[in-house]
Amino acid sequence: MMSNPSVPIADPVVLTERRDGVLVITLNRPAVRNAVNKALADAVDTALTDLEHEAELEVGILTGAGGHFCSGMDLKAFPGEGVPRVADRGLAGLTRARRSKPLIAAVEGAAVAGGFELALACDLITAADTAFFALPEPARGLVASEGGAIRLPGRLPHHLAMEMLLTCCTLAAPDAARHGLVNHLTGQGKALDAALALAARIRANAPRAVRVTRQVVAATRGLDDHTAFTVQDPLTAPVFATDSAAEGALAFCEKRPATWTVPPDSAG
């Protein structure tokens, strides 16, 4: 049966693009500043699953269409859909997910409420100098429960983080960069370019070493040094026996770029 040409076809709520081992995931509800409803949450979760399981994809970038990153949970959909979590992986399948590959947030415009929590769940953040961050949940009778109240005090000076959490004030991207929350500050419209440049720098390194480094950071956060080494060593020891470890040493000695094994190399 032919489709009715008079009925408009809705744009996908999430766009994905593969660029040389990088998966660019674009939130695509610009009319509502890319607010997260169930459809968008499920689509982001699917894209993150592809990133996790496709060997040729090494780095992900999360960004937004229409000049904004994300305005958080779609409050109009909330009464019917609830918080758009996906299984045990949190908001949009990201905020509580256990990931193995680096993810970069490329922020333009608003990254507020759950949108800010999505950015905080990423490993790196690039932002335009016109971007801004906020956690206004208490002003809506809610709590920043998808990582905002947990992660922000570890990313900013404590009292600044508490001011954002308790007063719902906005933090401009230049101030966020000054406090180390943003890795690279760019001109308007250039956050994605900066994220792609970061991704290329990550991809120059051995994929397994990158993944295990992320794993160590996640597994040892908050532990004392003795316990941290006990947790770390079983994770890192196999890396030293991989083909990539041998290739990295040889490439250094021969003063040439290393050639890494993809899919992940074997130990021994």
Rank of each mutant, 00 (worst) to 15 (best):
A241I: 06
A218P: 11
V239W: 07
L223T: 14
P234F: 01
L235D: 00
F229P: 00
V217S: 11
P234Q: 03
A228E: 04
A241V: 06
P234Y: 05
T220I: 10
A219C: 07
A228N: 12
L223Y: 10
Q215I: 02
T220Y: 07
T236G: 03
V217A: 12
T220N: 01
H226T: 14
L235P: 01
H226P: 09
A228S: 11
A241P: 08
A228G: 14
P238A: 03
H226K: 10
T230Y: 01
A228D: 04
T230K: 09
F229A: 09
A241H: 05
L223V: 11
F240I: 12
R214D: 00
T230F: 02
A218H: 11
P238L: 01
A241G: 11
A228K: 07
T227D: 14
P238G: 06
A218L: 13
L235Q: 04
L235I: 11
F240A: 12
P234R: 04
F240T: 14
V231T: 12
R221K: 14
D225H: 12
Q215S: 08
D233P: 08
P234M: 06
F229G: 06
D233Q: 12
V217N: 06
A237D: 08
T236W: 04
T227W: 13
D224G: 15
T213G: 10
T236Q: 02
A219L: 09
D224R: 12
D225M: 13
F229E: 07
R214H: 10
A237T: 13
H226F: 13
T242K: 02
V216E: 00
D225T: 14
D225A: 14
D224S: 14
D225S: 14
G222K: 00
A219H: 02
P238C: 07
P234V: 03
T230P: 05
D233L: 14
V231D: 00
L223M: 15
D225P: 15
V231Q: 05
V216C: 01
P234H: 02
P234E: 04
P234L: 06
A228T: 10
G222M: 04
A218V: 08
P238N: 01
G222V: 02
L223H: 15
L223G: 12
T213A: 13
G222Q: 02
T213R: 09
Q215F: 03
V231H: 00
Q215K: 08
T227V: 11
T230L: 06
A241W: 06
